[in-house]
Nucleic acid binder design. Structure first.
Lengths: 129, 129
DNA sequence: CTGGACCTTCCAGTGCAGGGGAAGGTCAAG
DNA sequence: CTTGACCTTCCCCTGCACTGGAAGGTCCAG
C-alpha cells in the first residue's frame, strides 16, 4: 500500500509516517519502480501499537526500545512491564508535584481575593505573588 | 550594578537576564560609558517577582502581562487574581488527566504482570499495550 | 496531452525557556 | 604592560514530536 493509504488506515499523516521511518520506528519499506514507498499491511498493526503506547504516555524513544527488542526476535514483555512500572512511578511523582503546586496556587489566589491595591509596592510588582 | 552582580543577587544567570530583557520582562538598563549594563538595585525585586511567578507555574508571557500592567501605572491585582484562577483551573484539569492516565497505565501494568510471551503475536509487537 | 492527485527529498519552523560558545572590547591588579 | 575576569553582540543549539512548504517526479482519467 502507498503512504497515503497507510496514513488513512492508521489515522495519521504521511508526514508522521516519514518522520517515524526517519526516527527508526518504522522499517524502511520497499519501493516501487518509481520510488514510491510500498508498505506491507502489517505496518498498520505496528502503528496501532505505537499509537496505544503514545496514549499511555510513552516517548518515541521508549517505544523504539520495545520495537527494537521485538524486531531482534525476542518478546519485549519484560521490558514493557518495566516501562509501565517506570511510567507509573513517573505519573505518581508528577501528580504529587502538581497537587503541591495546586495547594500553593490556591493559597495565593485566596490571598489575592481581597484585593487592596493601595498596599502594593510598585517595586514588588504584586504582593500577592 | 553590573549584570554579573545582578545575576548573583537574583540567583540567576547573565544569559537569563539578557534573555528577559529581550523578551520584554526587564526594562533596558542604563549603560556605562563603555556599554556595560548598569542596573538599578530595584530590579532584584522585579526578578524575585518573576521567580515567584515562575514557581507558581506562570509562563513568561503571563508574567509579562502583569509587569506591563504594573509598568503602565496600574495595580495588576485584578489581573493577577484572574491569572491565578485560570492557573488553578488548568492545574485541576491537568491533575484529572494525569489521574485518568495513571488508572489506564496501572491496568496495563497489572495485565502485563503475568507475562506470557507465547501469546504475543509479533505483528502486534506486544499484546499488553 | 493536460490537469490534478499523489508521491519524492530537503530545509525550516513550531513552542518554551533559556544555554553554548565565538569574537572581540574593558577594567583593575600586579 | 600583560593577565584574567568580566562585559558586549551574534548566531546557533537543546528536547519533543511533529508540521509546513518548496521544487520536482509519477500516475491515471478525460
Amino acid at each position: 500500500m502507498r503512504i497515503g493509504e497507510l496514513a488513512e488506515a492508521s489515522s495519521t499523516t504521511t508526514k508522521t509516517l516519514r518522520f517515524y521511518e526517519e526516527a527508526g520506528l518504522l522499517p524502511a519499506p520497499n519501493r516501487t519502480a518509481s520510488g514510491y514507498r510500498d508498505y506491507d499491511p502489517d505496518v498498520v498493526a505496528r502503528l496501532n501499537f505505537i499509537r496505544r503506547s503514545r496514549t499511555a504516555g510513552l516517548s518515541l524513544a521508549q517505544i523504539r526500545e520495545v520495537l527494537d527488542i521485538r524486531d531482534s526476535g525476542s518478546a519485549p514483555c519484560q521490558h514493557v512491564h518495566e516501562l509501565l512500572e517506570d511510567r507509573l512511578a513517573g505519573l505518581d511523582r508528577q501528580i504529587a508535584e502538581l497537587q503541591a503546586l495546586r495547594a500553593t496556587v490556591a493559597q495565593l489566589r485566596d490571598a489575592a481575593t481581597s484585593v487592596e491595591p493601595a498596599d502594593c509596592d510598585p517595586v514588588l510588582v504584586c504582593r500577592y505573588l
